[in-house]
Simulated scan of single mutants.
Amino acid sequence: MCLPPRLRHFCWFLLVLLIQGPPSGHVSANPFPGWKDETDWKKEHERGGAPRRGPQLLPGLPTNISVTAGRLATLPCRVANLKGRAVSWIRQEDLMVLATNEITFTTDERFKVRAWRTGGVWAWDLQIEEATLNDAGIYECQVNTRPKVSHPVYLDVQLGGAVIAGPPEVYVEAGSRLLLTCWVQAPPRPPGPITWLHNTTPIHAEGSRGGVSLHVAQEGAKASARLSLTSVTPTDAGNYTCQPEGLDPAHVSVFVLQDEEPRAMHHDAANPSSKISAKLLILGIFIILLTHTDR
């Protein structure tokens, strides 16, 4: 039987395959060997091999950052095996892209990205200078992979500063003791050094005045600073300021009384409206007496 030429060639090809047998070694059905191994981490893990990973966020990154209003806020993002991928910071409140890599897209110059590399790990920290209460919210660090790799961070901005206990004006008799207590709050860290000022002069326990006691106690992000002056004199009167480092100060005015007059009388003497009220009261009593006399 005579076979057509094309069919004869095909039969010879099959005969050669049967004689040689299958090629030795691994045959992959994937037309791009190695591609799936590099991207399918789950399959590789199931086979017991070490996964060839793409960009990954470092574990243990903080998800909550607290800062005092007016201070620098730093939101961390650490990415391993970045492999040329882009890293972006997005504000979730309005879905605004604040920055991609080191390029910022917001007109608010307080927002910046600080990036550096240590080995195979890249740091992409979003920094907000002089943070305000309006900056509080959720920010997300994203890597442009599929699926998306992201890390949300909640920024909490709290008011901090100094508050002096008691009224804004303090009256003390000459020769007695003056005691002022200042409370300072600076979340999330303990406040820095606290300085007491008399008018514009710093107060020191070892100063020439004598009888000065300064005591500072810290508890977490709060601190108390106590100032004590013994045997006050008229020269101790004036403005006292509690000044914590990097935070808003607090002020109190101190008046030293040199006689036995009560504080209210001194306050009224310095208040013109009090004098007018007293005069009107006397005038009213005089009119009432005249009215009763006429009857």
Rank of each mutant, 00 (worst) to 15 (best):
P4C: 14
V254D: 01
K148D: 04
L17A: 12
P244T: 05
T195N: 01
V113L: 08
R85C: 02
G207Y: 00
M1D: 14
N239M: 14
G54H: 02
P234G: 02
A186V: 04
S274L: 03
V27R: 15
H251R: 08
V172F: 06
V184D: 02
Q142E: 06
V143K: 05
G246H: 07
E206Q: 08
G48Q: 07
P191A: 02
I282S: 13
A225M: 06
A221D: 11
P272S: 08
L18P: 03
V256N: 01
S231G: 01
I164N: 03
L155W: 07
R295Y: 12
I19T: 11
Y154R: 13
K43Q: 05
I285M: 15
T118Y: 08
V252A: 00
A131R: 06
L57Q: 11
H45N: 11
G137R: 03
K112C: 05
L15S: 14
R91C: 06
S28T: 07
G21F: 10
E261I: 01
L58E: 10
L197I: 01
K83T: 01
A250V: 04
E206H: 08
S253R: 09
K36W: 13
V67N: 04
N81F: 11
S213P: 00
V79G: 01
S273G: 04
T68N: 08
W183T: 08
R8F: 04
A278D: 14
G211D: 01
A264P: 00
L82Q: 04
P76W: 03
E140F: 07
I103M: 10
L95D: 15
R263M: 10
V212P: 01
L214P: 05
P31M: 02
